[in-house]
Amino acid sequence: MSILEIILFTLGKVLVLLTLILLSVSYLVYFERRISAWIQNRLGPNRVGWQGVLQPFADIFKLLLKEDIVPDKANKKIHTLAPIIALFVAFSTYAVIPFGPTVTLFGYSVPLVVADINIGILYVLALSSIGVYAMTLAGWSSGSKYSLLGGIRSSAQMISYEVSMGFSVGGVLLLSQSLRPTEIVLAQSGWMWNAFIQPIGFITFLVASFAETNRLPFDLPEAEPELVGGFHTEYSSMKFAGFFLAEYANMIIASALIVTLYLGGWQLPLIDTFGLPSGIVITLQILGFVLKMGMLLFFFIWIRWTLPRFRYDQLMSLGWKVMFPLSLINLIWVAVLIMVFNI
């Protein structure tokens, strides 16, 4: 393929992914409201369209048409920059997640991932470490106590949980011997899913991703009873929507990452034994990836409406005294496995 063709194919993949993500983010908000209503024995949004399926569009129009208020004491440029960083980080992380095997399209072989790079997992970690700035800067630039406290809480929380997240990923990298997401997926063929081989690492990564996405039980940066709205107290209109979209986009990326690293990615066990034509197999594999992601997203929402929030000192001691040693134990466990079984 020439450079021009590569650029065209990549742009095509980016456009398709971006549209899908924006759509799924707005529908994730809808599903969260419906599921929370179901858990709390309410009805939830069911007026706009059939069963409220057009509710996301109504929400977006409401947010777009609202007045954008910037506080007097705010640093206006950084106040605008913060939600942009949040959205940039949330969307650009999808570039390295493989959502299917390599397919043949118009005579070209196209891998179903935007950028199949050698340092894919480190790229994700790098972007998530940049994502801390969105909240820190939002909190600082608003010129409000609640925002500042929320921003500082969020940076301390994210830095703490990034440690156990990084060490849990270490176990996966040891087994697959590569940082390339496509190879990590291929290393989990059959039932060799990392969730079964290293369950402790799976749990620590899951907990860390809850903390990284600021979801309950770790949503202290925006704890309503103490901090009004946390780092986004002073945000309104589309800038607020930016943070809102980024939070849900981060939930989707977290579940996509967990599926890629621990649940076999797009691979379905035993699918080769049925002798189906390759087109159907690839479609089933992509659907399998989406289904695994959907189940994890439901889990995220389910946890939010089931568990109460941690206290701040509990959050920190859980991160450093429980999750961090557990992720180290997992690393040793994987190293011993490799030594004994020579995987």
Binding site: N118, I119, L122, A126, S129, V132, Y133, W140, S155, I159
Partner: peptide, 26 residues
């Protein structure tokens, strides 16, 4: 130098500068 590049972002632009900002804000 792909590894150096990504580590530059993780360590310098990510971790160290977050601590800098943290201290400046406090």
């Amino acid at each position: 130098a792909q590894f150096i590049a990504v580590v530059q972002v993780i360590i310098y632009a990510g971790a160290i500068m977050v601590l800098f900002l943290f201290v400046i804000m406090l």
